[in-house]
């Protein structure tokens, strides 16, 4: 599994297409409303939105990834880094920031390779 992280709108999906050879229909784009990830797709993007949906529903996103760990082999997971701002005043967003961080650490820990994308340019950080 390859994990790609970076700030919003940095070109992470474009990077997956250009550098990892992903095709347009390889992508499953998560939303807050996503309840089940489509693991038939190679690339799973915006997993931070999936995490926010889990938090809003009172579910553990980390538990979801742990339960589906065997299905992550060969996948490309793509996440917006939401960890660097002010601690949100809103309790849900605060919980999201923490749950997302724990989930990312689990996923990056399992990944063979972790990329950080900055302004469209990738840097290997694992």
């Amino acid at each position: 599994m390859i994990f790609i992280i970076g700030g919003s709108d940095q070109g992470k999906c474009a990077f997956a297409r250009e550098t990892l050879g992903a095709a347009e229909d390889d992508f499953f784009i998560c939303g807050e409303e996503t309840r089940e990830i489509d693991f038939s797709r190679r690339c799973i993007a915006h997993i931070e939105r999936f995490a926010l949906g889990c938090v809003r529903r009172g579910e553990s996103v980390e538990d979801y990834w742990r339960a589906n760990a065997a299905r992550l082999d060969g996948k490309v997971l793509i996440a917006d880094d939401i960890s660097c701002g002010i601690v949100p005043v809103d309790a849900t967003l605060r919980a999201w920031r923490e749950a997302n961080g724990r989930a990312n650490a689990f996923l990056a820990g399992r990944a063979e390779r972790v990329w950080r994308v900055f302004c469209g340019l990738g840097q290997v950080i694992k």
């Binding site: 919003s8 709108d9 939401i82 660097c84 002010i86 949100p88």
Partner: peptide, 17 residues
């Protein structure tokens, strides 16, 4: 300005994008 855990209004999102 791309790595905070805030949910913004559409103007701010358009600016950030």
């Amino acid at each position: 300005i791309y790595s905070d855990a805030a949910v913004y209004d559409e103007w701010t999102l358009a600016y950030r994008r």
